[in-house]
Design a protein around this nucleic acid. Structure first.
Lengths: 276, 276
DNA sequence: GGAGCGCTGTATCGTATGTTACGTATTTTG
DNA sequence: CAAAATACGTAACATACGATACAGCGCTCC
């Protein structure tokens, strides 16, 4: 039999437990898994047994230390929380059609990403991007540079001084000389994080440039220098990570910035139309 | 304002935090709430700051001790776990403002787009793209070229002869000479449809090139030449159209192609790793 | 350019926590 | 029914964890 969760492990062995440990097991199952994350003292009090009984209980489950037991519980929780997809797999009845698992994962990623993103954060970033006293630079990594490109293409229409840094490293590295405190640098960087980008971000940060970072949930090292960090979920059933969540956040920001610059932007757009 | 979760509390105050504490906040949000349940040492290591910074961070959130902060997180988790419904109910309250419509619209667009897209269609296109007897060309319009670039970056890794047509029109127009019956041309074109792309597609079609078209629900005129048409929903409450649906379809195809070329692709990827 | 303030990390400290030894109670077995 | 074995709790112990004092540093504002 495949034991995948501590709960299963318990129900598997609860029959072979002495009375005290069984009470521990039952209280853990009843408030699974929260009691297990608290201290031994609290756990024992909730179960109405002594602390050593709790320790003997986790030892019987095969753990060396109590912290080890707690870590396992936490990882279990992490798996549940971070990939809501697993829940939909557990309850396969919701939408009968054989829809693409890729789509399902992406929808979850989007919801999760935005759940961790407040309106205020987005508004702050949009305000920063719409601030026309400084310049805006955008750059991305190997797979994410198209996102930078996409965002730049839109932003450049509603305001001046938007630059997509592309091409050879030596080229965009030298653009650092144009960057100062009033400027914003938008960086896209997901695993595997690129050294060149990190170095670039560090230097820019030292020059006082405000960095807006689009990254994955494991946070690029650039987060250390960033003024604003957007952490998107990237996990999908594929050999590649998905940048869809970051893409949608980018579109959302594009929309917000455009709205803020509406008055001036409309004028610009009319001028642009005239140029064709 | 009603603060009901620590996540809200953080996003409310993150703007007024010094750099180190902000990094703590960002890592907590990115792996919410699991990092917060671990020890101060682990939390600080994950955030790349020192332990006192973590303690100052939780103090700023209004907690007296670190354990008090952890208890609050645990209770939050308990509430979520015991009634999964509350989880979805929390969602609108957390970002019920101006952002949600954008996300909601995008989610709808994704569902609608895939609803009109059969597994078989996707499989057919993937098979066509994975066919290595011919070359694959990708090109996009003004705002969609980044999508072509994104797709090309991935496809070029798992197979040879993938070319992203970019730069000046005269440059890629001349590449027509390399295209024949066994080749595939992937075109991204949404409103306002670009004449240059339409002409390009027509000529390619006359040369017998297989065209895969990514367009919006109103169908670019290129559709009449295309072997496969993917019509994505693009309507969002913004001044711009959304390419998110097309982006996700592209990612799905990338995944499918990769899976088909798994055997050879793995070898290629190993070779590529060796080149670094 | 200098003085003051605020932020951050290092090192130290006290304590809460997990752990263990041992004695008592309870059950099991011949 | 007696004797042994197992189970359980009390109490002492050691560790590791959170908390704090302090010094260095960068930043801002005169």
């Amino acid at each position: 039999m495949m034991i995948s969760s501590i709960a299963e492990l318990i129900s598997d062995r609860i029959g072979a437990m002495p009375a005290g440990e069984r009470r521990a097991a039952q209280t853990l199952i009843a408030n699974y898994p929260l009691i297990g994350l608290k201290t031994v003292a609290e756990f024992s009090a909730a179960a109405g047994v002594s602390s050593p009984t709790i320790l003997r209980f986790v030892a019987r489950l095969g753990f060396q230390h109590y912290p080890e037991f707690q870590s396992t519980l936490q990882n279990e929780l992490a798996a549940q929380l971070q990939s809501p997809a697993s829940r939909t797999l557990n309850t396969p009845s919701q939408n009968g059609g054989a829809v693409s698992p890729m789509l399902e994962a992406t929808l979850d990623n989007l919801r999760e990403t935005f759940r961790h993103l407040s309106d205020k954060q987005l508004a702050d970033i949009a305000a920063r991007l719409a601030d026309r006293r400084g310049k805006t630079f955008l750059i991305g990594g190997r797979f994410t540079d198209p996102l930078a490109c996409y965002m730049a293409a839109h932003l450049a229409i509603v305001q001046p001084n938007v630059f997509h840094l592309t091409g050879q490293e030596s080229v965009w590295r030298d653009r650092l000389i144009d960057m100062g405190k009033r400027d914003v640098l938008v960086i896209f960087d997901i695993r595997r994080y690129q050294d060149s980008l990190v170095r670039f971000a560090e230097t820019a940060h030292q020059r006082g440039v405000q960095i807006v970072l689009f990254t994955d949930q494991w946070l690029s090292p650039i987060a250390r220098f960033a003024r604003h960090v957007i952490a998107g979920r990237t996990a999908v059933p594929s050999a590649w990570d998905s940048s869809a969540a970051l893409f949608v956040v980018a579109e959302t920001l594009i929309g917000a910035v455009t709205r803020q610059l509406e008055a001036d932007g409309a004028k610009r757009i009319r001028e642009l139309e005239g140029l064709r």
